[in-house]
Design a protein around this nucleic acid. Structure first.
Lengths: 166, 166
DNA sequence: CAGCTAAATAGTTATGATTACTAAAAAAAA
DNA sequence: TTTTTTTTAGTAATCATAACTATTTAGCTG
């Protein structure tokens, strides 16, 4: 859902004011990076943002892009989809469950929910800590990929269960 | 939720049989890596698994651990929490929403839900593609971290909205 | 159960995203 | 303006993960 040009400019303006008010500098680079993210709904990667902002600020460095993205994220103005900068974490538990993750120490605990709504009530989580945000991601194959699809890897899991329970 | 030793061995055994049946080799290294993951509920990183398996197979290489984890994941025996190997993707959309991600091409689309249950019915997703799995992550601060907590960064978002809507 | 052959491993190097570093530049305050 | 402090550009470093290659091994075959 893209937002209009007026709204983009309104937010960039508001951002500048908030920066000044809180002792951060509203630099040209920061405004352009934030503007670039406000203008799109395609969840660009850092490299993509770098490429686009470079059209307006040819001398901008990749480091500035990364630094600014970290700043904006820390300040809650943008979010990142997916959880890079963390190591991959593995799990042999094949029961359907969710995870609680501590953003400070990386603790990861399992959350089971019997009824669908329960996880939103966060009942099982209070024992582990306080939830700041709920991250939900659906993974699959998009329409376009389905068209030129052929691959059909055999999926061990179902087979293993059969053998395991005989 | 840890599983018992018997169940661990049963699954390792089943894994070996499935491997042979499908032309993959049930090597000592693979069994140990899978066993290590079955024995724990702490979602270890690759390095952690490496360190533990090394106690039993001192000469095992880190590459083997990574290779085996990829294999197990591809076969559906284990899953990874978080999505490494992808670039971080950013988003300035601060409305509550979820993401649809194509695991093949990386397409990422927003999913909005008015009522809480709707996202589970996956209604809005059918237009984008087929969902294979739903990933839910709650982020926050765990009990242990709350105890020795002091940090309280100011969170720009709320402030910006106020300025923006005056 | 010894030999065969494709698959897997160990050890190492490479890659690719992200971060750290430092001198120079620029924003906000005085 | 001038000053002070933050931020930036450019580059080098880091860190997790993947690729490469000679050697080894699992599982088949006779």
């Amino acid at each position: 859902m893209k937002i209009g040009t007026n709204e983009v400019e309104r937010r960039v303006q508001a951002f500048s004011e908030v920066c000044r008010r809180y002792g951060a500098k509203a630099t040209h680079q920061r405004r352009e990076i934030y503007r670039e993210l406000l203008r799109t709904d395609e969840h660009p990667a850092a490299e993509t943002i770098y490429a686009r902002v470079r059209k307006r600020i040819p001398a901008i460095s990749l480091d500035t892009v990364y630094r600014t993205l970290r700043l904006l994220e820390k300040k809650g103005l943008i979010s990142r989809a997916g959880f890079l900068n963390e190591k991959a974490r593995f799990d042999a538990n094949t029961l359907p469950h969710h995870h609680f993750v501590c953003t400070r120490c990386g603790f990861m605990g399992d959350i089971y929910h019997k009824e669908r709504d329960e996880f939103l009530a966060l009942r099982d989580v209070s024992a582990m800590g306080t939830v700041n945000s709920v991250h939900i991601e659906l993974r699959g194959i998009c329409k376009s990929c389905q068209k030129n699809s052929r691959l059909k890897d055999n999926y061990f899991f179902a087979i293993l269960i059969v053998i395991s329970t005989i």
